[in-house]
Write a protein that binds this DNA or RNA. Structure first.
Lengths: 383, 383
DNA sequence: ACCATGTGGTTAATCGATGTACCAGTGGGC
DNA sequence: GCCCACTGGTACATCGATTAACCACATGGT
């Protein structure tokens, strides 16, 4: 399968070159500007000039009309807008970006180890939330995938140096996160998901009472009679890992208990399976497993079942995220809903505001809430 | 609990404005160019001019040095590159895009009904594949979400009119797909995933023998003794839906059989559950269900189990896509691997080639293959 | 009659990089 | 000694939109 760049007779009829422009290059090599883009229909996109001419005004008037700046009579404004619609013109993003030093593009960089193939569905939800706010305001979402923090930092530096983006959404806040300072240094607005920290160089966006969900989960399990709980956490360097783990241990301590075990993972399915196997083989096996995301919880359920245990009769499982899939599994997954989508929307709004956009400030009430379904049940009587 | 967007003391000390810049606008509104971007460190990014000055050459020389065009001595070239590195300069994406009419940005538009919340993990895989080829060449991926085809078309028109992208990756080819013609009319290079059709206005990219996977699945089930199979397809308007459905029915016909049922869905979990329930309630219940994607298959397994059936003892289930999750469920999901990631990479290469980039043409050998795991088993003896 | 005040535009500079046209040297051939 | 080719660069127009500065003209107050 070769590259399929057909040559076309270029600009056959009445190519309207500016006066004095050379008719064509002698060597027959298409100049870069006409290049591969030229299709048979390759209607050269109209420019502001064409619109100005069509409306019988100057280009400045057109610009002012579409941007609502300057002083333009309503009549002229209409004429301009009509002409623009007629010609199907929209201002060139590149030209506008160059002049205004603003690209209307936001970056989302997803960082994860190379061997984790599928992106966490968590990000799909987040993106949905972001897009819902960005798109209506003409903003685009530039998505990048990187393997580690070094790459991520380098990427921001490049994006900033090239002036490709107006801001960035940071996910997976780390305990000692280099990105806030980096981005501030680069002069790029940003918001950090999940860990509102007033002292940080970039504002955080997230539900309040981050720990509420896990506390509720523990309370729920205690109420069901469970006394031996284990927590399967994410990577230790993530901020929310610490928050949730502490919430877990605190809640247990409040009942005079200690966790049977707390294990950290890298969020991969493989790790979830390995840890679950280990915990379930423990002499004093936990009767309930609390996972720090749904993907791992699903793996955990599968692993338990494969080990001959029934969920929830023999072991209860709680997830975190409330991904759509969890509703349809058997048993349906008990999990913590943290409204990723809504948080994403709020993050977008916050970021847009910092980019100078006039948006109503995000209202993000609520807190993570436990959704009780079928993967949790009474403690096994044998225990 | 209100939004938690803390304000920060903005730009407190010594905002370093360029000389000659007005100290501040009288009305206190920051001018657009300084806008929100100005941080205390807001080091104005260096321009090509600064690099030229630092290297003691003209801006043209700098441009030629970094682009490898024109005639520049190796010595000067080095000096320029060093100066650029020293200053941390990269050419402005906006300026370059304006001048060259090329943005180094590719669009991926994900279309799905508004009520499907989480994006199909399928797209995560695809994006991973795309990014792997785009990023190393300095290309960015602009991601958009839309609800329906009308919105999608409008979006391409806007993106084209604004000159925001160089090309697009089209997914979910439809039987009567308006996008190829639309994009050709707009002069935008594109590739269509999944249905290589030489006659189409845009080239298709996909594994060969699209039907091989489903055929293999059917053969596998027949070999296990199944005779009553049902197929749960995607939306009828998608090309691959038809291909796979036909493959399914053909393969059965080859064995002198007919499908117990073929049902179309909108790919939502809800639909998958509903259809599964309906099929399993059939008087002559199918002993094997073949789903057209993994997400639905997982829902199908859950539904069967909830209905008191064991998988695979009472009913076998086959998925399609080979998402990572399927390996860890209980039972592990038998599915068709179509190497979404590799196809994504190939699509990126093909598209880059059409954008005038000098990339080795994608090599896409192989075909969809059945991955036999645990969700398929011998036909129940009672049948 | 005259100046302040608006109104509704226009002109021209500018954003940063690119590429064509052009120019200054420097040997080389004969 | 003269012309030519070649090397290594520079000057300037250009991409398309934005915006500060300015201007022509009408109106109203004194």
């Amino acid at each position: 399968m070769k590259a399929r760049i057909e040559g076309h007779p270029e600009d056959v009829a009445g190519a309207s070159q500016g006066p004095g422009a050379p008719a064509a290059r002698p060597d027959g090599v298409p100049s870069a500007r006409q290049g591969a883009r030229a299709g048979s229909e390759g209607a050269a996109r109209p420019t502001i000039k064409a619109v100005a001419a069509a409306a019988g005004v100057s280009t400045a008037a057109v610009s002012q009309a579409v941007n609502g700046t300057g002083r333009i009579s309503e009549a002229t404004r209409r004429r301009v807008l009509d002409a623009a619609a007629e010609l199907g013109w929209s201002p060139s993003a590149s030209a506008s970006a160059l002049r205004r030093a603003r690209t209307r593009t936001i970056a989302l960089v997803v960082r994860r180890p190379t061997d984790v193939l599928g992106a966490d569905p968590h990000f799909s939800e987040l993106i949905t939330g972001l897009e819902g706010e960005l798109a209506p305001r003409g903003y685009g979402l530039l998505l990048h995938l990187v393997a580690d923090m070094a790459q991520e930092s380098a990427l921001y530096e490049r994006l900033a140096a090239e002036g490709r983006i107006d801001g960035a959404v940071l996910t997976d806040a780390r305990a000692d996160d280099p990105r806030p300072h980096l981005l501030r240094g680069l002069g790029l607005p940003a918001v950090l998901l999940g860990a509102p920290d007033p002292a940080a160089p970039v504002p955080g966006v997230g539900l309040g009472q981050q720990d509420a969900g896990v506390r509720e989960a523990v309370a729920h399990l205690l109420e069901l009679g469970h006394r031996r709980l284990a927590y399967i956490a994410g990577p230790a360097e993530l901020v929310h890992t610490g928050l949730r783990r502490t919430a877990f241990e605190d809640a247990l301590a409040g009942a005079g208990l200690r966790a049977v075990a707390v294990r950290h993972t890298d969020f991969t399915e493989r790790a979830a399976v390995a840890v679950t196997e280990e915990l379930l083989a423990l002499p004093d096996r936990p009767t309930a497993l609390v996972f720090s995301n749904d993907s791992m919880a699903v793996c955990g359920i599968g692993t338990a079942q494969r080990g001959g245990l029934r969920v929830p009769e023999d072991v209860s499982v709680v997830g975190y995220d409330n991904l759509p899939l969890g509703r349809w599994l058997h048993p349906r997954l008990t999990t913590v809903d943290q409204q990723v989508q809504r948080v994403g929307a709020a993050a977008a709004r916050a970021l847009l505001a910092r980019c100078g956009e006039d948006v109503p400030p995000p209202v993000l009430d609520g807190r993570p809430r436990l959704v009780v379904r079928e993967s949790t049940g009474c403690v096994p009587s044998a225990s």
